[in-house]
Design a binder for these strands. Structure first.
Lengths: 362, 362
DNA sequence: TGTACCTTTGTGTGCGCACACGGATTGATT
DNA sequence: AATCAATCCGTGTGCGCACACAAAGGTACA
């Protein structure tokens, strides 16, 4: 009998100690049938006692099982944020390539009612082993989530959460806290309690996303609690009529020339930044969200002061890792994973861009 | 012949295509001797052409090689920052447990001349496969680095870098940029260009660490460039005489009652925070570094406004991963890995604490 | 007592790879 | 022609595990 040079406990060690064969131990570990109560109890005892930790690599090698993961995201054409999420997922999948993991990404039109449910149905027909979704509204998402539950397919929400649908896990930012934090920073910029304008993105008469609403709520809560003297204006843009944006801004600023500070809770701060650059207005203090290429450009040009980022790459990567740990390593995973709320300015942005591919020499 | 159901290319596939046996392919891959030029060339061609990617898990399983990694850190008694680094390293090691990686951590007294070199010598005698070090001064560190180079043992610098000693990689923050960024934030807090005091930690007549000096330089550079009107005071604490700290502060603030804003470039901002709480002075605006428990307490109590963190856990984790990729996966690693410069306040700190163990329910 | 059937258990093979061993071929030397 | 060394190459075994298969033991019934 070869002795075990490493300290790691093998199935064989368990088998010897329990006085059975490796086959029996294997059956107990995998909960397969065909084991007497006595043997089962004995083996379970030893497993517990020796704290057996299977070698998942050997396991994956032997089982040769394939895993199909599916991801459902909003349709985006070159929208950096979602592309970063995809990049993070792909990166994680490639590091697990020896575990036979395949990732399939499909899309839904977030502005078309019913699109999510339809895409979800198609997805379920492929019987994936695990799912990652950026949810739509609760009503839209519900049926898909229920079907997944019924088929015992684990699913993760990314970007925004719907707790009532009980996902395996959630990866994203706490929008409310994020708005609250943004307010703290903005209030520093708004000296003498000067007024602030909130730029909003409206679709179909409502705010375009839950995130936007929650962030604004957090923001207003901070202002209410800490600097109620700050007057808040609102300026609404309309997703459907982007060509009107400039006119809206012109109107607003000629009506309120004293406003020198603004924030937006969607990812399109560049609308304002680029406008300020165009009209050559300097010193307007602006905050926004997400490191889209156009936002970064404004940040570096000085037309946006601060951006709050939500680590899309890490979200993507972590969500794949989560499914990996759940499906393959069979570990317990954390139900909530709030990404850090990071403040980015011209001065520290270099350490946030392309952290995964950067090989610079600063 | 069993056919290859997965798309992954195996050694066997290479062997068949090259018209040789797996043994020969194996020899080529590992650069072992005993292969004719003709075979070698042929195999290398096919390897290239089919883009062979070895299954590192199978490889590790078969080779059963053990890796001893060693880490050399400053002596610290419950100093949270270094403990976080250790925790990150241990966490990474545990995820790689099936690769037979062992981590040994040893310490040196950073305030005793010669201690680093001595600890380094002892470490090298154990012939580790890879090393992670928090370097001391360049002179102190040099001999150890040279010996490691000579023995072909890869080493990583963590926390602070000494480029001239040419480590395999570096994980840490860019101190200069970090100070620069801190100045941007502080200048927002210092309305009307009010004066600012820099609290420094002195050891043996000099600043206690490179980091401290570099951060201060970056800070001063920003102030010089952007708000030269801000007057900068200095208040020196002495590592050897902590009992004098309060007295020094009393003296300083009675001489300069108008100073209401301060920053420190070491991790001991809590000295000031706790003092302000003790004398019940509110509203003093304070910035500092690192999420030590005592700093966090002050942050939550409001006696410190902002902390810049440098992700010690991630540093530890990433540095182990780096050695893993270099030694086992034989991948190329990045020579510089600057951690993001993150701004933490009461409002976002919850998303930075214990990110690895948190299972909360915010 | 034999047969059929079920339950319980052990054994063998292969996953992709590393590495030891031994076989084949060649050329040089006696 | 025989011997030997050197070079080159193929095969076999095992890493820890999953899983198929077969063997062993027990029970029921004719």
């Amino acid at each position: 009998m070869r002795e075990n040079k490493s300290e790691r406990i093998r199935i064989k060690d368990i088998a010897i100690k329990a006085g059975v064969s490796v086959g029996t131990v294997d059956r107990v570990i995998h909960g397969r049938s065909g084991v007497s109560e006595a043997s089962k109890k004995k083996v379970e005892e030893i497993l517990e006692q020796m704290n057996y930790q299977p070698n998942m690599y050997a396991s994956a090698l032997a089982s040769n099982k394939k895993y199909n993961l599916t991801c459902l995201l909003p349709l985006h054409t070159q929208e950096d944020y979602w592309m970063d999420i995809e990049a993070g997922m792909k990166h994680a999948v490639s590091t697990y390539k020896d575990f036979n993991i395949r990732l399939n990404i499909s899309y839904y039109d977030q502005y078309e009612s019913g699109a999510f449910a339809e895409a979800g149905k198609k997805m379920i027909e492929t019987m994936p082993d695990g799912v990652i979704m950026a949810p739509s509204s609760e009503e839209e998402t519900k049926s898909t989530a229920l079907q997944l539950k019924e088929k015992n397919i684990p699913f993760i929400f990314i970007d925004s959460n719907i707790k009532s649908l009980n996902p395996l896990s959630f990866y994203g930012q706490n929008s409310h806290s994020s708005g609250y934090f943004a307010a703290r920073i903005l209030s520093l910029m708004a000296e003498h309690n000067e007024p602030v304008v909130i730029f909003r993105l409206i679709y179909g008469g409502k705010l375009g996303s839950n995130q936007q609403r929650n962030r604004e709520e957090g923001f207003r809560e901070y202002i209410r609690n800490n600097c109620p003297g700050i007057k808040l204006y609102e300026l609404n843009f309309y997703v459907k009529n982007p060509e009107n944006n400039e006119k809206l801004m012109e109107e607003f600023f000629s009506a309120h020339p004293e406003v020198n500070c603004g924030i937006t809770f969607n990812s399109k701060a560049y609308i304002i930044g680029e406008y300020m650059q165009k009209i050559k207005r300097k010193g307007f203090k602006m905050m926004g969200y997400d490191l889209l290429r156009r936002n970064v450009k404004c940040l570096k040009a000085g037309s946006i002061d601060f951006i709050i980022a939500q680590q899309p790459t890490e979200q993507g990567q972590s969500s794949i890792e989560c499914l990996f740990e759940h499906l393959i390593l069979k570990k317990e995973v954390k139900p909530y994973n709030y990404m850090p709320i990071t403040l980015i300015s011209k001065e520290n942005i270099d350490f946030y861009l392309d952290a995964h591919v950067r090989t610079n020499n600063i």
